[in-house]
Design a protein around this nucleic acid. Structure first.
Lengths: 194, 194
DNA sequence: AATGAACTGTACTATTTGGTACAAAATTGG
DNA sequence: CCAATTTTGTACCAAATAGTACAGTTCATT
C-alpha cells in the first residue's frame, strides 16, 4: 500500500461521466467527451477503468442506483404515506424541472442505446429496473399494510404497473411537451392506487 | 428522360435499411452496415441519399409509418369493434412473435438513440408518435360512437394514455421476459377502456 | 535517501468512420 | 451511331476513434 495518490475523486469523476452518458447517450458518448468532462488523461482513465467505456458505464450505473434509487427507497420506506409519495413522485416527472432530470431513465435509455453485442450491459440495466420495480412493490405493500390502499390488485402487479408507467413517461415526455397533458396522463394512471 | 436505370428497388433497399436501424439502433448502425444490407455501393447510396445516413433514416421512418401505422389505422377504422381490436393489439405485444417485432418502437427508439444535435430527426420521430396517438384517439372516439365505451374520459386523454402504454411496453418488454407478467400488465392498463 | 508501488501525461498506432471524386457503364432520344 | 443523361463502382481521403506503450512523477515504507 504505497504509491502515488490519485489526483481526482473517484465518485466525482463518475458523476461527470454519468452526466455525459445521460446527456448524449451511451453510443454517442465518445471517450474524448468522457475524458474531457472527467478532467483526467487517458493514462489515468485506462488505469482506473481497465475495461474502458464499458466498465465506466457499468460503474456509472451503480452510481446512479446509489444516488437515485436508494434515495427513493429510503423516502418510500420512511415516509408517512407512501401512496401519496408515489403520486407526488410521478407528478413531479411531468414538470420541467423534475428531480430526476429530463433525459429519461438512465436504465431505460441504456436498454435502448446499448448495442446488441454488449448484452452484459443490457442485463445489468434490466436488473436495476427490476430493482426499481421492487422498490415500488415494497412501497405499495407498505401502503396496503397501513390501510391506505384498498385495491385488490397484488402489490407485485402494481409494482410492475408503476415501473411500466415510469418507462412510458420517460419516453412520452420526449414527444409531449404539454405538461398539462402529461399530468393528466399520470393522474389517469394513478387511479390504480385507490 | 434517359440515363442508366437503377439496379435496385427503392422501397426494397429502404426496407433493408429499416431492418438494420431497428436491429442495431440509429447510432450504432454504420454506413457500412447499411450499404451491405442494402446491397448497393457508395456511389449509388450517396447519389440516392444526398443527405447520407440522416436522410436515409428520415425516409426509413416514412416507410415504417407507411407499413405499420397505416395498417393499424385502416384496421381500426374498418373493424367492427375497435375497442376489442386495441385490446388484442396490446396483448399481442406481450407475446414473443408480436407483429411489430421485438425491437421496440421505431420512433420511441429514435427519440432515445438519436443524438441531441440531430434535433430534426427527433422532432420527426415525435411527430409520428403523435400520429399514433391520433390513431388511438380516433379509434376510441369511434368506440364511443358505437356505444362500446362508457368511460367519461375524453377520447383524446385515452389516446394519450394508450400511446404512453405503447411507449412503456416497448421498454418494459426489454427488461421483462415473463410474458404472463406483461399480459397481466396490459390487462390492468386496459381497464381504462370500459 | 533509496526502493518500489501507484499513478499520470504524452506520443503513437491502427482502425473505422463518413464522405468525395470521377471515370466508366447503361440507357433513351435524335 | 452519337450525344445527353443518369447511375454505378472504385479508389481515395481526412477526421475521429479507441486503445497501447512507456517514460516519468509522486508518494509510503524502510
Amino acid at each position: 500500500m504505497a504509491g502515488r495518490p490519485k489526483i481526482y475523486d473517484e465518485t466525482a469523476i463518475l458523476d461527470k461521466a454519468v452526466e455525459v452518458f445521460w446527456e448524449k447517450g451511451y453510443a454517442n458518448a465518445t471517450a474524448d467527451d468522457l475524458l474531457n468532462a472527467m478532467g483526467i488523461g487517458k493514462g489515468s482513465f485506462y488505469f482506473a477503468f481497465k475495461g474502458g467505456k464499458e466498465e465506466l458505464f457499468r460503474k456509472s450505473m451503480e452510481r446512479v442506483v446509489e444516488l437515485n434509487f436508494k434515495a427513493i427507497r429510503d423516502a418510500l420506506t420512511t415516509c408517512a404515506d407512501p401512496v401519496q409519495f408515489i403520486q407526488d413522485f410521478f407528478l413531479s416527472l411531468t414538470g420541467n424541472e423534475s428531480p430526476v432530470g429530463n433525459k429519461g431513465c438512465y436504465f431505460g435509455n441504456a436498454l435502448i442505446q446499448v448495442s446488441a453485442d454488449d448484452a452484459g450491459l443490457k442485463m445489468i440495466a434490466a436488473k436495476y429496473l427490476h430493482l426499481l420495480e421492487e422498490i415500488f412493490t415494497e412501497a405499495v405493500q407498505r401502503g396496503k399494510d397501513l390501510g391506505l390502499l384498498h385495491t385488490p390488485e397484488p402489490a407485485g402487479a402494481l409494482g410492475t404497473y408503476l415501473v411500466n408507467l415510469w418507462n412510458g413517461i420517460n419516453v412520452t415526455r420526449r414527444m409531449e411537451s404539454d405538461q398539462r397533458k402529461l399530468a393528466e396522463l399520470v393522474r389517469m394512471n394513478l387511479k390504480v392506487l385507490n
